[in-house]
Design a protein around this nucleic acid. Sequence first.
RNA 1: UGCCCGAUGGUGUAACGGUAGCACAGCAGAUUCUGAAUCUGCUUGUCUAGGUUCAAAUCCUGGUCGGGCAGCCA
Length: 581
Amino acid sequence: MAGQAGETAAPAMHFIRQIIADDLKAGANGGRVHTRFPPEPNGYLHIGHAKAICIDFGMALENNGRCNLRMDDTNPSKEEVEYVESIQEDVKWLGFNWFGDVRYASDYFGACYEYAELLIQAGSAYVCDLNSEEMRAHRGTLTEPGRESPHRNRTAEENLDLFRRMRAGEFPDGVRALRAKIDMNSPNIHMRDPVIYRNLRSSHHRTGDAWCLYPMYDYAHPIEDALEGITHSLCTLEFEIHRPLYDWVLDQIPEFFAAAQKKYSGLPPETPPARPQQREFARLNLTYTIMSKRKLLELVKNGLVNGWDDPRMPTISGMRRRGYTSTAIRNFCEKVGVTKYNSLTDVALLEHCLRDDLNKGACRRMAVLEPLKLVIENYPDGQGEELDAVNSPEDPSAGTRKVPFSKVLYIEKSDFMEVPAKKYFRLAPGAEVRLRYAYFVRCTGVVKDADGQVTEIRCTYDPATRGGDAPDGRKVKGTIHWVSAAHAVDAEVRLYDRLFKVEQPGVTEGVDYRAEMNPDSLKVVTGVKAEPALADAKPGDPLQFERTGYFCADKDSRPGAPVFNRTVTLKDSWTKTAEKS
RNA sequence: UGCCCGAUGGUGUAACGGUAGCACAGCAGAUUCUGAAUCUGCUUGUCUAGGUUCAAAUCCUGGUCGGGCAGCCA
């Protein structure tokens, strides 16, 4: 079954759901819903794939159906095992389970070949000796029809002989190809006798050197779907124009597939043969994000980011390392919807889904990113105490923890202003604030260095306000976070911002997308003072540093030297009001 | 210049011939031991011209605009 974990947003009706509902109602495919997610293992999965995964697996799950995970590995020159492994990990992490074993297009090379011979025998395919340049010349243009190949009318015997010799490796790459015999006058260029097999000397990650010819996507994909008993073959819009070819392949010798499905699908033998239908939806586009696998690969290869799982990357692995939850991603995918409209989704929606989930699940902690010393003059020297702090106001079951408190603390530099701005609620000379979970303190003065920079804040505390409430009912406007200097853990924090500084990187003509990268997408902050509970944070566990943002420990953490990634900031209305006045 | 697909607030979507709704973003306020969260209110929309109909975002026709298609890539 196409299982998943966690709770996702309430589903809305969309055209794919509608099509499936209609098919079910009409009793198509014996009431089965069987989808597939067919990535080419030539790169890491990204957030755009997450949308496709949620649709493919989601439709199966909702309809008590199945979804296969299939590596579409028909071009050995681009594909690698590293990618097939990461793909599986990412799909699992997103919370989905595929039906049976992972499938590979390469599992069906034999069947594809067999079908090709049948096509040849039926007079529906022929070996063409035109090279790619000549073939392009014969193809015509968008407005002019193509011309038939001089080899189009070879006999079935001659074609079969040539095709078998192609398989045997008698011809170099590029000199002959197997073509579907369709219609050179078709207004749809994909129907002008498309190449369906080509010689390709490249060692395949699974079949090694067993083959020197490989099927083309347009030919192999419908066969793969049919062999697996797929009922709904969902893909992105750019394949819409390929649909007639998809159908053509399946409709040539339908009998072939009835038997083949039994052999390859892993479904009960009594399962009636499916006739897969391709349906297309719009791919995901996100502001400030690049979704091209090719460009993502370039960023990695050129060292513009630190690998596929760099937390700034829109890859599933990068987002996971950054601290995204799979629930947030799934909710986002549900919220963007499924249509045929070529849209550009505001990355703010993704961040909203992220914050929404993190708010519920993240443990609150205190960490001071830019420490400023705060000395409580009337607090006894060398003494300390432990105060109770709740782990999550959104989830009482998360319990509480003890936070050590003492005379010398660190607070955030930005939480003190010697000359406070309008509506500034934090610390300033003479002002009183609450130290979260601790006491009210009132600023009595500052210590400055030779340059006039404030190096230390002096204050007094009110012992009666222990725990954060004043028995006399007096209120403070501001509550700030803090860490006890003597107990603080030194940490490194990596502040991430969007990788690109323009809304649509890579679309402005004449501008290289690399020139549109945000030079401040990563800021490393060292000397961060963290509360002791943060010393042994597990990589990936969602945290909120109160008033600062959501974070998670990075895999680069070492004992006693944690490293935190900022997943996303908290929403910040103060900066706006500060900028206004 | 051919074919295919699409068009609803700033963004993403819903409305299946019958009151244009939701979410994000934005703005204003309430509340708050996180300037977070939460709550309330507000601004903003059916590409266009015809037609069918008692009634059109929805059906039809023309136009406009946007996307896709000429790899032996997927």
